[in-house]
Design a protein around this nucleic acid. Sequence first.
DNA 1: GCGGCAGCCACGCTTACTTCA
DNA 2: GATGAAGTAAGCGTGGCTGCC
Length: 302
Amino acid sequence: MMMMEKEDLALSLGLNTSTNYFPPRLSLMAPSSSPSWPMPSHRLLGPSGGSISNVGGAGETRPLLTMIDVNRAPSVAATAGKVSEEEEEEEEGGASSLNSAVSSVGGKRAERHALAGDDHDAERACFRVVSDEEDGEGSRKKLRLSKDQSAVLEESFKKHSTLNPKQKLALAEQLNLRPRQVEVWFQNRRARTKLKQTEVDCEFLKKCCESLTEENRRLQKEVQELRALKLSPQLYMQMTPPTTLTMCPSCERVSNPATTSSPANPQPSEHHQYSNHNRQTAASWAPFPLEPLFLDSIPQRS
DNA sequence: GCGGCAGCCACGCTTACTTCA
DNA sequence: GATGAAGTAAGCGTGGCTGCC
């Protein structure tokens, strides 16, 4: 079963495949490097408390797969043979066992829902009563969504990771599901995306850590070598050249002795006669290539 | 204007169930 | 066939936001 779902679902679990869902990002990268990775949408709440991810074109509800035959037996059930026809009929009949979790909606909560008169909540309450009657054991049967249903939900999720009530109802109607099911699916989908993103971020940080550790090791070794040279001037003098680099005593910048005065007998005044001294690019004085090594060594997000 | 309350929504955590190796 | 891991639908508690009184 996972084959299809992995293709359909996992997929947009990637970094940016979802056009509207932007998981929490790491702030390691320069802003310019990730312009397409804005803030998490789940925090971009509109004035009404709802997500504004639907604002800007996605607000309208439009059929994604209008020709879906909601009456067709779910392929999953067909292949797995796990979901009986009785169960499907039960679902269609409004007595789905999906919500058979008998339950335990807390008094305050149930009270709230009862007073709210919310369509699907009322519907849910209704289902609960029915299921209570049908399976008083409190068993919670699960019904897999069909491939078509999952596909449509997935498509919808790619467009907007959160739904406004209208969209939710439209989707539910289109897929012959209860609004609550659509809502739950989106919640779980967001959770999966976030989890996947967390894993990706974790991997990324791990690589960053490894790279920086390696870079740190390299730099420490270099520091030790330089200190050793400083502590043994004779050796330092004998080396021809000890290194291709030396430090300018006046400006304390590292330079190449081959192109400037001798390190053993620095002549600052002469050295500074170079008209272009002050215009030297940093690169020409750097003890090592000025490319930000640590940045180079940090793995780039794909 | 401020505080309390209710309603709504989304999230995190968890459970129960399904599927697969 | 049994079993554990992974995936997923759903339940529950909670916090934030908004509107009303």
